[in-house]
Computed example of a mutant assay.
Amino acid sequence: MIKPLRKAVLPVAGLGTRFLPATKAMAKEMLPVVDRPLIQYSIDEARAAGIEQFCMITGRGKTALVEYFDKAYELESTLKQRNKPEALEALRASEMEPGSIVSVRQQEPLGLGHAIWCARSFIGDDPFAILLPDDIILSKTPCLKQLADAYHETGGNVVAVTEVPHEHTNRYGILKVGADDGRMVEVTGLVEKPKPADAPSNLSIIGRYVLTADVMTHLSRLERGAGNEVQLTDAMAKMIGTVPFHGLRYEGKRFDCGDKVGFLEAQIAFALERADLGPQVREFLKYYCERL
């Protein structure tokens, strides 16, 4: 029997050094794409996939991430007094069910695998999703919903995958693949950041995962891998052959918002999708393009 998927872990302990000085006094995940912070996109995507319980893996200076989802009584009262119904409606996107979100501190930056291990009490014996807020995906069906559907179809582990240039395989976790029907691929091996000459394919994992709790057994050993960090990819690789493991070629366009160019591209792409902003954005893009 396949257990229901109700939990999600969001690793948000990074320093955001690529966005200094903006991230000197604010969490990188609070940077807005149009008018919503990155963390909100991940939470919204997870809720659309049926996720009900959330765990943020935080670090020093990240308290704003939790506070963002708290109820802002004074702000709501002021908006009501000033008759600002549209602003009040905008706040509803950040409302969470009481007790649905917790945070755990990662005291040392020892890698993604270590961050997930920090959530071991939250995860327990349940399957769980992982969303890396740096990645936001513009799609008709939310990316994690696509993964959740694939999980309920196959059981075991499912990761979102995309093709990357062969010369960039040393930046990602890369799959060794078996059966491939064009949508779903059987994962027969995983390599963290291989050199292009050693890469078994050019299929890369992006920041969306659905994993069974079995991975925690391997993470608990806290074995160091690439970069002298505890790598989630290494722990997942040890599960191959014991549980079903698939990569899903998801529908949608991914934006790497941990990169300045990717972040700027996401601003434009998401703004163009909005009826209230799209026409104006097209106009100013046309203006600037004609000046080049």
Rank of each mutant, 00 (worst) to 15 (best):
R36D: 02
P165S: 06
R105G: 00
G61L: 12
L211E: 10
L285E: 02
V215K: 06
R120I: 10
F54W: 06
V33K: 04
G225V: 04
R105E: 13
I136T: 08
D256Y: 07
V210D: 08
D198C: 05
I136H: 06
C118E: 11
G182I: 13
R183G: 09
Y287W: 06
L272H: 01
R6G: 01
A49L: 09
V33N: 08
S220D: 15
F54H: 05
E273P: 04
G113I: 06
Q267H: 12
D70W: 04
L219I: 10
V281A: 03
K80Q: 15
A148R: 11
Y41G: 04
A115P: 00
G182K: 06
K3C: 07
K3L: 14
S77L: 11
K145W: 02
H114G: 02
N157F: 08
E74C: 00
V9W: 01
T17G: 10
D135P: 01
I57C: 15
L10E: 10
F284Y: 14
Q106N: 14
K195Q: 15
T233Y: 02
D149C: 13
D181K: 04
G16K: 11
A148K: 11
E45D: 15
Y41C: 03
L175H: 02
G173Q: 11
V261L: 13
V177C: 15
S139A: 15
D234V: 03
H246R: 15
D44I: 13
L277I: 04
D126L: 07
Q267P: 02
P37G: 07
Y209T: 07
Y287I: 11
N157S: 15
K62I: 06
A179F: 03
E29F: 11
M56C: 05
G262R: 05
R291G: 06
K176Q: 15
D256I: 01
H168D: 15
M1E: 09
A237M: 09
L88E: 01
M239I: 11
R183K: 15
I57H: 04
G124V: 04
E74T: 12
P127Q: 01
V230I: 14
E95R: 14
V215D: 03
L38S: 12
M30C: 13
Q107D: 14
M96P: 01
A160D: 09
N157P: 09
I240V: 07
K71T: 15
L144E: 04
V104E: 02
C257A: 02
R171C: 12
R120P: 05
E283H: 12
I39M: 07
M239K: 04
P11K: 05
A148M: 12
E74I: 12
V164K: 11
P98C: 08
A266Y: 03
S42N: 07
P98Q: 05
P98D: 03
V261M: 12
I205S: 08
V185P: 06
L10K: 08
R291F: 08
A90R: 13
T169L: 08
P133F: 05
V159N: 00
G178S: 09
